[in-house]
Design a protein around this nucleic acid. Structure first.
Length: 924
RNA sequence: GCCGGGGUGGCGGAAUUGGUAUACGCGCACGACUUAAGAUCGUGUCCCUUUGGGGAUGUGGGUUCGAGUCCCACCCUCGGCACCA
């Protein structure tokens, strides 16, 4: 028995042993029991290797897994690599290597690092998204979505990152602060004007380009993504973020006739009750160009055209960052408000967004700040409407002025009748609908998911284009799905599953419906998957709107599966978030026949069948395995993915559910958002150069010390600051624990070899030693804290127990030694295994042992400290025997006899308030 | 601007949800051991103090026998959304 604590020897020894024995693999998973699927968001293997932030998060997940295993659960804890994508590719370019080569090194590094942390992953079931065996199924997923009408191509104004040379999804554009990047041309974050958005990856300001791109119709699921949020147990801030991002708004689309023309202008509003105060209509430049320009009187036409052209020449970015002074031009047209016959002048202004609602807004300056500013700028009248029972419930600060200056006219819509605003809105919407002047609408902030990337390192989108089919007016893919419904739709066959059928207006509506370039597109038959990503040397992005694969005829030249004519492959690859939208479904399936089946040569008929009745003819998901192993019981990850990965994964899961592949809708019923680790008060990032590499600490102190320190630093959902000095404390604690066992072993080896019959004849709690009471209190506290991820306080309690043991060495017995070892096992697995097997002589492994139970009788102490207060201020503390502590009168009597209290209440007519077992408060 | 989280010692952070504020750890100081340094162990450590006490949980009010915790107003800070109709 080595008396000195040698972390290296201990840790390598047990890591090997665990792996050999398969301790951390749920052996029986295929049998009756449902496993506890404990998942940490898989990392992308960056060239820098795992940093302390990863170590913090993954340890938090592993601690929970080990705890659950000791609680008797069948823990399945897999790991993999999110290796496809721009991040990996960019780095490969930077170091002048291919992504393939680089990944061989980086995944090896990550594997080594994750193993060295002692995490209990099941390494026999793992996925790497850039493996052909994985991404052929990502391609299958795309095809499934396409066949369901959930994938389509459209020409749209999209975000183009000039540095990454590809388009990006809306979710991948954020504020510089969120991205942690300062865009070029600015020195600090503070300098960057509000409204500037940057590429999540590189911090460049994206340009607007009109390109034809592949989208996934996530907006069809907006409603379910929203309502299901009520059914899942997630960190509140993530739920909020998702809700905001989906941004559901109920309202009404109202048509206003244009005076003197057989035309209308259509506006969306959520507050039709204020419509009586409408004094003008404003339309976006885009709306004006498409719908109104032809109606504008000749004398104004030049003026209006000029304004439109100037506005359109600016990018959205410019329009938003420019000073928010209202500009606009009158069209000479009037819209009639049929509620009151008011003639509203129609204006064009760039403050109205083309992409939201209809692109036209009814101006109610009495109730909207922006409308008010516009009215002020152009001297339009302001009318206020009585909108609440007590006058006005929608007070807008600037509008105070209107009242004070007597500018506004108050009118009563007559729609209130003593009702609240919400009821009044329902009333008026009903009224307008009945009259046929408008229609209820639901608008969402969520837009469809743009997944095309003009890059190399991703799964090629498995689609092909056939010119011959196009010329002959033949849409060959629709023949494939001839038996499926709605195949005539422009955007492919409409999905008819459980998705919301309500039409929506949102930015997803194509501005220019032009599908001519993909009318003949069809999927590469599943039986011929994968569409393999060729190894090429010129894989750098060119930035010409096409990916590098477009330079490789040997890749894109193919024959049309429908007519046999020469055809062209899609040369874009898909977004890396598509890879990660289903990886958690793959883990339990990777060793199944379903997942491993070769797609090549699979019967063609079954493809048609699968499109028709959603039979599971080809699928990586074994239904039996999926229903037993899924969904994920506990998902552990960063909140930064709130509107990215988590939203996409939910969407894909819901879609696969509707297609009959899964029997649940929500992939992660429980999600815990851990915080982001900071260092020297700043977010850990490569650009700041403050990355902490766990290797150094594992080498010097050991994985157990690092794990202990990381978990003790602060709450799991906080942002702990990594400090070198703190880790020394963790190391000291481990050494003290180790010495406790070693010392006890050598001083009284007898009692260790002969286990005491725990739980045997003990008469009452009073007879227990103080240490036993402390132990049971600790078990109680730690068990509770483990459930809520309060690892820092759990460890504080364990430290208190250790301190108590050191203070009362004579009271130490086998029970406390055994239980302490178990309590600490999730945090310091190697140390505890060594103690368990080598010192305590118990059977391998502590991680398969049973979590200790506390005895309610033993958590009670024989004396209770009662605080003595005078007028609410604590003046003394009194120790009272447990049987007296509940007796109000006895407590009061004892308290009055206390010397300190006597001093304070002498000669006063003091009344006491007694809280049994807690407090005696004297009041006068 | 709107929505949400949060302000507690020199530092990271506790506080059974209205009942002994500052647990646990870091740091620091002193002591023991040591030729010495380090490691280790021990003691102390919210602030002021005339050693009787007094004052402290961002600021100011309120409710209560009693407030870090509840209510009102304000300040600061961190996140989400944002010319979204």
């Amino acid at each position: 028995m080595d008396k000195k604590y040698n972390h290296k020897a201990i840790e390598t020894k047990w890591q090997k042993r665990w792996e050999q024995a398969g301790v951390l693999r749920p052996e029986e998973m295929r049998k009756a029991k449902k496993p506890f699927y404990n998942l940490w968001m898989f990392p992308y293997p960056s060239a820098e290797g795992l940093h302390a932030g990863h170590a913090f998060a993954s340890t938090g997940s592993d601690v929970q897994g080990r705890y659950q295993r000791m609680r008797g659960r069948h823990v399945f804890q897999p790991i993999g690599f999110d290796s496809f994508g721009i991040h990996s590719e960019n780095f490969a370019i930077k170091i002048g290597d291919t992504p393939q080569n680089m990944l061989k090194r980086t995944t090896a590094t990550y594997t080594r690092q994750l193993k060295s942390l002692g995490h209990g992953y099941d390494w026999t079931r793992t996925v790497t998204t850039s493996d052909v065996d994985y991404y052929r199924w990502t391609q299958w997923l795309f095809i499934e979505l396409f066949k369901a009408g959930l994938a389509y191509k459209k020409k749209a104004v999209v975000n183009w990152c000039p540095s990454c040379k590809t388009v990006l999804a809306d979710e991948q554009i954020m504020t510089p602060a969120q991205a942690g990047k300062i865009p070029a041309g600015y020195k600090s974050l503070e300098e960057v004007p509000a409204g500037v958005r940057v590429c999540e990856r590189c911090g460049s300001i994206p340009e607007q380009r009109e390109l034809s791109q592949w989208f996934l119709r996530i907006t069809d699921y907006a409603d379910r993504l929203l309502t299901n949020l009520n059914k899942i147990d997630w960190s509140e801030r993530v739920v909020k973020a998702q809700r905001e991002w989906i941004g559901k708004k109920e309202g009404i689309k109202i048509s206003y006739p244009i005076e003197g023309h057989d035309a209308t202008v259509v506006c969306f509003t959520t507050r039709p009750d204020t419509n009586f105060g409408a004094t003008f209509v404003v339309v976006s430049p885009e709306y004006a160009k498409d719908h109104l320009l032809k109606l504008v009187p000749e004398e104004l036409e030049q003026n209006v055209s000029k304004y439109i052209e100037t506005s359109l020449s600016k990018t959205e970015q410019q329009r938003q960052t420019e000073e928010k002074i209202k500009t606009g031009v009158f069209t000479g047209l009037y819209a009639i408000n049929r509620l009151n016959g008011y003639k509203m002048p129609i204006w064009v202004s760039d403050f109205v967004l083309a992409g939201f609602g209809t692109g036209a807004v009814v101006g109610v300056p009495g109730h909207d700040k922006r409308d008010f500013e516009f009215a002020r700028t152009f001297n339009l009248p302001v009318v206020r409407v009585v909108v609440g029972p007590d006058g006005d419930t929608s007070e807008i600060t600037n509008l105070q002025k209107v009242r004070e200056e007597g500018e506004g006219v108050m009118i009563n819509s007559g729609f209130l009748n003593g009702l609240g605003v919400d009821e009044a809105i329902v009333d008026i919407v009903d009224y307008i609908e009945k009259k046929g002047w408008g229609k209820r609408e639901t608008a969402y902030h969520l837009r469809d998911w743009l997944i095309s990337r003009q890059r190399y390192w991703g799964p090629p989108i498995p689609m092909i284009y056939c010119e011959k089919c196009a010329k002959e007016g033949r849409s060959w893919f629709s023949e494939q799905t001839a038996q499926s419904e709605n195949s005539s739709s422009l955007e492919g066959p409409r999905h008819s599953g459980g998705a919301s059928q309500s039409r929506r207006i949102s930015r997803t509506e194509p501005l220019h419906a032009d599908q001519s370039d993909w009318e003949s597109a069809g999927w590469w038959p599943e039986e011929n998957l994968p569409v393999e990503l060729p190894e090429i040397s010129d894989f750098k992005p060119k930035g010409e709107g096409q990916g590098p694969l477009a330079d490789h005829p040997e890749f894109y030249e193919t024959t049309c599966p429908a007519c046999g004519a020469p055809a062209r492959r899609e040369t874009d690859v898909s977004d890396t978030f598509l890879d990660s939208s289903w990886y958690f479904l793959a883990y339990p399936n990777v060793d199944t026949k379903a997942y491993q089946q070769s797609l090549r040569g699979y019967g063609k008929q079954s493809t048609v069948k699968s499109a028709k009745n959603n039979s599971r003819s080809i699928s990586p998901l074994d239904p039996k395995v999926s229903s037993k192993w899924l969904p994920v019981n506990l998902y552990f990850g960063g909140a930064e993915h709130a509107v990215l990965h988590l939203m996409y994964a939910r969407f894909v899961t819901q879609a696969l559910h509707d297609l009959g592949y899964l029997d649940f809708e929500e992939p992660f019923p429980r999600f815990f958002a851990h915080g982001l680790m900071i260092n020297d008060g700043a977010k850990m990032s490569k650009s700041r150069g403050n990355i902490v590499n766990p290797d150094t600490y594992i080498e010097k102190f050991g994985a157990d010390t690092l794990r202990l320190y990381l978990m003790f630093m602060g709450p799991m959902d906080g942002s702990p600051d990594f400090r070198d000095s703190g880790i020394e404390g963790a190391r000291r604690f481990i050494a003290r624990v180790w010495n406790l066992y070693v010392d006890y072993d050598s001083s009284s080896s007898k009692s260790l070899e002969a286990p005491i019959n725990i739980g045997a004849a003990r008469i009452s709690a009073v007879d227990e030693s103080k240490l036993t009471v402390k132990l049971h209190q600790t078990i109680k506290k730690v068990s509770k804290d483990m459930e809520s991820f309060s690892y820092n306080t759990a460890l504080a309690a364990i430290m208190e127990l250790v301190n108590a043991m050191r203070d009362n060495p004579k009271d130490i017995n086998r029970e406390v030694l055994v239980d302490l070892c178990k309590l600490l096992a999730p945090f310091t697995p190697h140390l505890c295994e060594e103690i368990w097997c080598e010192i305590l002589g118990e059977e391998f492994s502590v991680h398969l042992s049973t979590w200790p139970q506390f005895d309610p009788k033993k958590v009670i102490e024989d004396t209770v400290a009662v605080a003595l207060q005078v007028n609410g201020k604590t003046r003394s503390i009194m120790k009272v025997a447990i049987d007296q502590s509940q007796d109000k009168e006895a407590l009061a009597k004892l308290a009055r006899e206390n010397e300190k209290i006597k001093y304070y209440i002498e000669g006063k007519n003091a009344k006491e308030i007694v809280v049994p077992g807690k407090i005696v408060n004297f009041v006068f």
